[in-house]
Every structure is written in structure tokens, then in C-alpha cells.
Design a protein around this nucleic acid. Structure first.
Lengths: 198, 198
DNA sequence: GCATAATTTTGAACGGCGTTCATAATACCA
DNA sequence: TGGTATTATGAACGCCGTTCAAAATTATGC
């Protein structure tokens, strides 16, 4: 019993790792059931004993990516000046996106299936990302309520996300990466300057 | 000759309209070749005489959507105050996204095929969207060069896009739409306030 | 008007996909 | 060791976009 379960656990782990490597190398729609099964050493049908679905597998990979992203943002949040700390977090986000393009994209490419929404841990981890902004925002906008700052954190995070999204897409053709970082830093500083005025 | 060509043109038009309606109703991956062929009254293979590809068809639909979006932004850019004009444009973008969710999403869901990049008119129309920001930005940041302002326009546009992207996604579950508009307006005003400081 | 050539339309067929499930293989227990 | 429960297997299913030989239609020359 335990023997078999152990093996299954290891296979499952190998499967997730293989999926992660595949996505990192070739994008999230290069995930093919037959290919994965062969790589992991399981029969085609056997995949569905390790994982319910290819979608579920992608979610498992996303969980890893979110954890790594969270760690990267944590590591960046060292500056004492609140505005510069926000800048550092934003730039860390940008670098993570650059260095993990396909996996980062996979985070948002989940097809919306009507009957099976994202599991709550996924939403919770995403919300956890906003937490990195809470402390600097408390100092930048001390007159706002906690709830207002929470909304602000989400909005600013989304704004940076949008700039990174377009920037990474265009990086391949037009704009050099350093310029993208400069734009992000400038925007975050503008937001901070604008927020302090209110 | 002209008779046959006319008919083909009309069929092509009907095909694009049907595709647009299908996407609007059920999302961009509800586009099925067999379904479209039946709806337009063409055989399955006949589709590929009207259009090279389903991807090309999606691009044709995107062209229409981009034209409508551009018109919506134009109609919104009436306020004399530059900051408030930018706010109005951003809100118009948000409303367009809300009212044309599936078609708006389809604008950015193009799978990157290595050998066939987006046609240049697509990129050009996208750049055209940024033009709406040029005039107000000239007044908000008069000390910057034209090129710097162009970059600024792209960055701010992307930022609003990011906020709308997450906002529309969460609208369905958490945040009421009006709050989203309020956040966008606040952010744009902050950016303007921050920019004037530089 | 007719025969012939050029063009266009057609849908069966192809290859690929995710997923399922009857069957075979294996592991477990007495 | 024999019998049962559990797990692994891969052929088969349904659906997909796309192709292409053949059929139908249209155009051309006489």
C-alpha cells in the first residue's frame, strides 16, 4: 500500500517537473498528454491516475510559479524608502516575467471553464502578492483606510502587470529591456508622487 | 468573373460577421470551422477559399474590434482639461472592455506563431490607440520630448489596460464595476499629478 | 449551342488532440 | 498459493483544423 502510494507520489512529482520544464521551454500549449506520459514513463491512461486533467496539471505548475514569484518579490522588498521599495518590487516582477516568460504567461492563460473555477488557494496566493505592497503603501498613503490601501495595492500591481505584459511582448521586436525597466520605475515614482498629494 | 468575385466577397463578409457574433457570444475558442461553414452556407473546405486560416479570420475580426475601440476612444476625448481627458479615455477603454468582453479579449489572445507574426496593420492600429493620449500628454508633460511622450503614452495605456484586465476578470466574482472605474480614474489622476512634478 | 478547358466547390480523409474504459497485469491478503 | 482488489494499459472515441482528389460549375473558343 504505502509502497505503491510512494511511487505514485514520486511519479506525480516527476510529472509536474516535466510539465514545468516543457512549459518553460516551449510554452503552455506544448503540453501534450502523450509526450508527458512518455517522458514520465507512464502509459497514456496512467497520466489520469496521477492528475485529473491537463488543466489541473497546469494549475499545479502555476502553484510552483506563484511560490517562486512570491519569493522573488520578498527578496526585492528591502529598501527602506517606501517609494523605492515599491519600485524595487515592480522591477523584481518585471525581471521575473522576463526570466520565466512562458511559466509567467501560463499563470494567466487559464481558460475559463464555467463549471470549474480556479481553486481558492490560487486566488489566495495571487492576493498574497499584493501583500508585498501593503507596508510601503501604509507609509505613502497613511490617511487612507486599510481597505482603501488594499484596493490601491491591487490597482498598482495590475498597472505594473499591464506595462510588463506589453513590454515583454514588444521586447522581442522593438524596445530594449532596460528601457522597459526605466519606464516602470518612472511610472511607480509618478504614482507615489501623485498619491502623496492627495 | 465579377459575379463570382462579388459573391465571394459577400460570403467573406458574412463569414466575418458570423465569426464576430460567435466570439461575442461564446468566446474566441468557440470558433469551429464546421460550425462557421454551416452558418455561412459554405462547405467545410470552402471556408479555406474565403480565408486562409481560422487565425486569419480572428485577425479580421480583431481589425473590426480595433476600429470600434478607436472610435470609442475618439468619442471620449472631448474634455478640455488634459488630465480629465486622459481619465475619460481610460474610462472609455474600460467600458469598451466591459461591453465587448469576448471580442476585446480576442484582441490579445493571438497565439504567437513563430513564422507568421501579426500583420503590420495590426501593430499600426494598436499604436494608433496611443495617439489619443498624445495631445493631453503634450500639455501635461511639455518639457518632455515627443519621443519621451510617446513612450509615456504607451506605458500609461498599458497600465490602464492591466487594471482593466484584472478588474474585468474579478468583476464577475468580487468587485463591483463602479469601483473599478473609480480606481482607474484615481490612478490616472495620480499619474498626472506625479508627472507634473517632474 | 456545343465541346472543351479553367476554375471553384465539395466532403471524405488525414493527422493530432484530450480523455475514457474494457481488459490485462499486478499487488495484496489469508 | 489461490482468490480478490487495485492499478496500469493502450486501443478506441469524439472532436478538431486542414488538405486535396474528384465532382460540379463556369468561362472560353468556335
Amino acid at each position: 500500500m504505502t509502497k505503491a502510494e510512494d511511487r505514485r507520489g514520486q511519479q506525480r512529482e516527476r510529472l509536474i517537473e516535466t510539465a514545468e520544464a516543457t512549459i518553460a521551454a516551449s510554452g503552455h500549449d506544448a503540453l501534450k498528454a502523450r509526450e508527458l506520459a512518455a517522458a514520465v514513463g507512464v502509459s497514456l491512461g496512467g497520466l489520469y491516475n496521477l492528475v485529473g486533467d491537463l488543466d489541473e496539471l497546469m494549475l499545479l505548475v502555476s502553484a510552483r510559479t506563484l511560490r517562486r514569484l512570491d519569493a522573488a518579490l520578498s527578496a526585492a522588498a528591502t529598501n527602506d524608502d517606501p517609494a523605492e521599495r515599491l519600485v524595487a518590487i515592480a522591477l523584481a516582477y518585471c525581471r521575473f516575467a522576463r526570466d520565466n516568460q512562458a511559466l509567467w504567461r501560463a499563470l494567466f492563460d487559464h481558460r475559463f471553464v464555467e463549471d470549474k473555477p480556479l481553486p481558492d488557494w490560487h486566488a489566495r496566493t495571487q492576493l498574497g502578492l499584493f501583500l508585498h505592497l501593503a507596508e510601503p503603501l501604509r507609509r505613502i498613503a497613511p490617511h487612507k483606510s486599510d481597505e482603501q490601501r488594499q484596493v490601491l495595492a491591487r490597482t498598482w500591481f495590475s498597472a505594473v502587470h499591464g506595462v510588463v505584459l506589453l513590454g515583454i511582448a514588444e521586447m522581442l521586436v522593438a524596445v530594449p529591456y532596460d528601457a522597459l525597466e526605466a519606464q516602470i520605475a518612472e511610472m511607480v515614482r509618478m504614482l507615489c508622487a501623485g498619491a502623496e498629494r492627495t
